[in-house]
Design a protein around this nucleic acid. Structure first.
Length: 640
RNA sequence: GCCGGCGUAGCUCAGUGGGAGAGCAGCGCACUCGUAAUGCGCAGGUCAGGGGUUCGAAUCCCCUCGCCGGCUCCA
């Protein structure tokens, strides 16, 4: 019997040899499970025919999934032992760790978590083998029903297998497809992270279960490193830095999810807004201003009132009108398009706005600036002829690339969100339109030479879109930019342009957001930079630090000179020592500190301290200003 | 919205049935200082809000509000 190993070698083995034995023979010590002719299997699996084997280790995502899946079983075993009445639901591995959902008739308390974690360690230390067993279907159902395992019984009803596979360790059994680790002792370092409520099968009309989240690693060092990463993410949390750096705040008197931009935060936002508006204008976008309110009739035409009502604030009745706070800007921009007749020669028309919108978000989902109820989108709608669609799309992608470069975002990927043709309810019916639009997007991405991941079923209901995914501090992808093709709203609003043949034609719409909402972008950038904004975005770019009070007037003069050149500069006029002033400027992450004393005042100079390079010594004020204004203008990220 | 946790000074937190505290920040005074915290002093709180139990509540119970972790949803 011949077995092809991952290094390409082929070895002969006797029939019936297990994957574990082959792993040992091949020196694959890190193997947790294997892929046998492409299918994931336990190491205990015996081989009966020629095969190709790949090892799953903790180093690859599939191997980690096996590891965390077994960890979830260990969690369930510990809970079952400590809470014999517990009913088990599901316990899968997730991107970072695992969870298990239980029904124990009450919530878990923090002290329960500690006990469970301790028990898991004891169980792992016993290093019991994890075995796969097969149970006839009706026998399994009898067992579940006999023990009141209603959730497992429901799961089994959804599985056609007979017999069904179970995994058994140390007397504990759980229905599971596998694969799993060979033994519980492989789980070396365990941390239970949190508990929460979770709806059974994610359905808010069904039972609320108690979920425990955890993570595990093959060594304590790896666990410690993971926990340190979590700590680092907490340190960079935009809500914490927003308060510490005086960027924004919330007041219960104002309302939930309604941010107050403080001067420093408002400055960052204003710089971003100026940047993107200037950039868009240079690319032929026309910026408009439209009101935050509109008649409900507008949203009845657009379909939002029908499809999006749950996220809209209820109408305000005045005189004979009913007004709503707008949840989206597109209908307003469509009305701008309709202001006058358009010729095929006018297209494309690119209508842009920093459009403020209001969405009713359920209170539980609000989170700092990342999830708010009042937000301003860097929005635009491109109205073009069908033959211009590809070029316009390419133009938007290039704009996104440019903006990301200036913002220092290097890590991102493209997701092509397509319809799921089987899901007839979620997407408007017009297969020809969809096929055409999806094909256009694919071709455009090819023309750009950009790789993208296709995501079936992620399209919006009216058309396919390109989402730009950027990993945040925790490594989770966030959608920042999006480009959506829309054949639907032009139809609803009866949009037209006059074709070459003088006949009315229907334009295509592209909805696009580049910087996302200002709220979300600033939240993202705070975390990205850990509050240390690059020079061009820093709310305070330079702080002048007089050594003693007699240097105050020179410090003021330096400040005025900088401000006259457009540099955001402050003076620390406190009577503190220089060390203290430096510390405070460092804490506020000011990019440049200028220490000025007798020597500097006498020579029209400044002693430059960079927040990253430290003391750079004295230089003429004029030279510093030239250097700093050049660095700001070029939006360099390596100026420091 | 749902489940759970939390809410004491601007911030971080101690105080678990009987005097409301600390550090930092703030203010004042002194020092006038050369690259990450000068010293001394002062002020600051209906202990989230409301109701209840108790001779007595920051502390125990109930309700409301807000925040946090999830679920569901999402720019």
């Amino acid at each position: 019997m011949l077995v092809r190993l991952p290094d390409g070698t082929v070895r002969a083995y006797r029939r019936g040899i297990t994957l574990a034995e082959i792993a040992r023979d091949a020196g694959a010590h890190g193997a947790l499970a294997a892929r046998l002719d492409g299918a994931e299997r336990d190491l205990a699996t015996p081989l009966e025919a020629d095969a190709t084997v790949e090892w799953l280790t903790f180093a690859d995502p599939a191997g980690r999934s096996v590891y965390w899946h077994s960890s979830a079983h260990l969690l369930a075993q510990a809970v079952r032992e400590l809470f014999p009445q517990a009913r088990l639901a599901i316990g899968p591995p997730i991107e970072d760790g695992f969870y298990y959902d239980f029904d124990i008739g009450r919530p878990f308390l923090p002290e329960d978590l500690q006990r469970i974690e301790d028990r898991m360690r004891e169980l792992a230390a016993r290093d019991q083998p994890i075995e796969r067993i097969y149970v006839p279907r009706d026998e399994a159902m009898r067992r579940f029903e006999g023990r009141g395992e209603t959730y497992k019984a429901e799961l089994l009803r959804g599985i056609p297998d007979d017999p069904v596979s179970f995994y058994r360790q140390d007397g504990f059994e759980d229905m599971c497809r596998g694969p799993h680790l060979p033994s519980t002792g492989r789980i070396k370092a365990i941390k239970l992270l949190s508990t929460s409520g979770a709806y059974w099968r994610g359905d808010e009309r069904r039972e609320m279960l108690q979920r425990i989240y955890g993570i595990s690693f093959p060594s304590q060092e790896e666990l410690d490193a993971y926990l340190a990463r979590l700590e680092e993410a907490r340190r960079r949390d935009h809500r914490r830095l927003g308060r510490e750096l005086g960027l924004f705040t919330f007041a219960p008197e104002v309302g939930q999810g309604l941010p107050l931009w403080l001067p420093r935060g408002a400055t960052v936002r204003r710089i971003l807004e100026r940047y993107i508006v200037d950039l868009e204008e240079s690319l032929g976008y026309q910026h408009v201003r439209t009101p935050d309110l509109a008649s409900i009739e507008l949203y009845k035409i657009s379909g939002h009132w029908e499809h999006y009502r749950d996220n809209m604030y209820p109408p305000i009745r005045v005189d004979s009108e009913e007004l709503v706070l707008r949840p989206m800007n597109c209908p307003h921009h469509i009305m701008v398009y309709k202001h006058h007749q358009r010729s095929y020669r006018d297209l494309p028309v690119r209508i842009a706005e920093l459009g403020t919108m209001y969405r009713y978000e359920r209170s539980g989902v609000l989170s700092g600036l990342a999830r708010v109820r009042a937000m301003t989108l860097n929005d635009a709608h491109i109205f073009c002829r069908p033959d211009q669609l590809t070029d316009e799309f390419i133009g938007v992608v290039r704009l996104i690339q440019r903006a990301y470069r200036d913002l220092g975002l290097r890590d991102f990927w493209y997701r092509l969100s397509l319809r799921d043709p089987r899901d007839r309810a979620k997407f408007v019916h017009n297969d020809e339109m969809w096929d055409h639009a999806e094909g256009e997007l694919r071709r455009a991405m090819q023309a750009l030479g950009l790789a993208c991941v296709e995501a079936r079923g992620e399209a919006s209901f009216y058309g396919p879109k390109l989402d730009v995914q950027v990993p945040n501090v925790l490594g989770k992808d966030e959608t920042i930019s999006t480009v959506q093709i829309d054949f639907y709203l032009p139809e609803r609003f009866g949009l037209e342009y006059t074709g070459e043949d003088s006949r009315p034609r229907r334009p295509v719409m592209i909805h696009r957001g580049v910087l996302s909402t200002m709220e979300r972008m600033v939240a993202f950038l705070i975390e990205q930079y850990a509050g240390a904004f690059p020079l061009w975005l820093a709310p305070e770019q330079v702080r002048v630090l007089p050594i003693a009070d007699r240097h105050l007037s020179y410090a003021r003069r330096v400040q005025e000179t900088l401000r006259a050149r457009g540099v955001r500069a402050e003076v620390d006029a406190s009577s503190e020592r220089t060390g203290r002033k430096i510390r405070e400027a460092e804490v506020m992450k000011v990019p440049y500190m200028l220490v000025v004393g007798d020597r500097e005042a006498a020579q029209e100079a400044v002693s430059v301290r960079s927040r990253v390079r430290g003391d750079e010594g004295s230089q003429p004020l004029a030279a510093f200003i030239d250097r700093v204004t050049e660095a700001i203008a070029s939006r360099r990220h390596d100026e420091e």
